[in-house]
Simulated scan of single mutants.
Amino acid sequence: MKAVNRLFAMLGSLALLCIASGSVAEENIDTQATLSHFQAASQTQPFFDSAYGYAVFPSVGKGGFWIGGAYGSGTVYKAGTVTGSAKLYQVSFGLQFGGQSYSEIIFFQDKRAYERFTSGSFELDAQASAVALTEGAQAKAGTAGLSASSGQQFIDASYTNGIAIFTYAKGGMMIEASLAGQTFSFEPRN
C-alpha cells in the first residue's frame, strides 16, 4: 500500500510540473462549459435534479504504457454552490498504450457520500463504474461487465455506494485493458 501511495504522490508531482499555469478565470470558463455539456446530456439531467452535490473535472489527462496515470483538477459543489476544489489522481496497471483527455463528473447522492469525498481521503477502486457519454454512443464499464449502445438509447445509470460517475472523451487515443484506481484530494473554499 505504501508503494501505491508513493506512486500516486510521484505521479501527482509529475503532473503538477507538466501542467501550464492558468488563471482562475480560465478554469471557471472550462468548468462552466463542462457543466453545460453534462447538463445537456439526458443521462445526467436526473442526477443534477436530485444530487446532494457533485464534483466536476473539466479536463483529465491520461496516458500510459503498461503503467499509466491520470491527473485533473476540478470544482466541488453542494446544492449548486461552489464549496471547494479537488484534484484527481489515477494509477493503472495492465495492457495500455496511448493518451487521452476526458471530462468527469461525480454525483453525490446524499450528505454521507459528499462528506466522504470532502474528507480528503476519498478513493475509487477498480470496482467503481463510470458511464461514458459521447455523441451517438455510450459505454458503461464496471465489475458487472461492459455494455454499449448507440443512437438515442438511454443507459440505466444509478448510484453505487452513494456516487454516480460520468465521463466524456475530449480527444486522444488509448488502447486499454487495465486495472485502475482513482484517489482525490479536497481543498475547501475560503
Rank of each mutant, 00 (worst) to 15 (best):
G64R: 10
I155Y: 06
S129M: 06
Q182P: 03
E104H: 05
F57Y: 15
K2S: 14
W66E: 01
E187C: 00
S92V: 10
G68K: 02
F47Q: 11
G171F: 12
T167R: 12
Y54W: 11
G84Y: 12
Y102V: 13
Y168E: 03
E27N: 08
R6M: 13
G53P: 00
Y168G: 03
A3E: 15
A40D: 09
D49K: 08
Q182D: 09
A79W: 03
S150F: 07
L35R: 06
S185F: 04
T160E: 15
F154T: 07
S85N: 06
S23G: 05
G99W: 07
A130C: 00
G69P: 06
L124R: 10
G72F: 01
A139R: 15
A141D: 07
F48E: 00
V131P: 14
F57T: 02
A169I: 12
G12V: 12
E26P: 00
A20Y: 02
Y77S: 13
L16M: 10
G151W: 00
A137K: 04
M173R: 04
V60N: 07
S23C: 05
F38K: 08
K62I: 08
T34K: 00
G84D: 09
Q100E: 14
A128R: 05
G145H: 14
L133A: 06
K62P: 05
G98K: 06
G162F: 15
A128P: 09
L17F: 04
T183F: 02
L17A: 09
E123H: 12
G12W: 06
L14N: 05
E123D: 14
I175F: 15
K78E: 14
S158D: 15
P58R: 01
Y54M: 09
F107H: 10
L95Y: 10
E123F: 10
K170W: 02
G171A: 06
K170C: 00
G22A: 12
S158M: 02
S73F: 00
Q109W: 05
V82H: 11
G72V: 07
F122V: 08
G99C: 13
G98Q: 07
D30I: 03
A9S: 04
G98D: 08
E123L: 10
K2D: 15
G172L: 11
G181S: 15
Q109G: 03
Q43R: 02
E115M: 06
V76L: 07
W66T: 06
F57D: 05
S185P: 09
E187I: 00
A51V: 03
A169S: 13
M174T: 11
S42P: 08
N161W: 05
A51C: 08
G72I: 07
G142Q: 11
G120F: 08
E123R: 13
N28K: 15
G12S: 13
T167N: 12
F107P: 09
S42I: 08
Y159D: 12
S147W: 14
G120D: 13
E115A: 07
Y52E: 10
Q39N: 03
E115I: 07
A40G: 09
T81F: 01
E176L: 05
T160L: 09
V24K: 09
A141F: 13
E26F: 04
P188T: 04
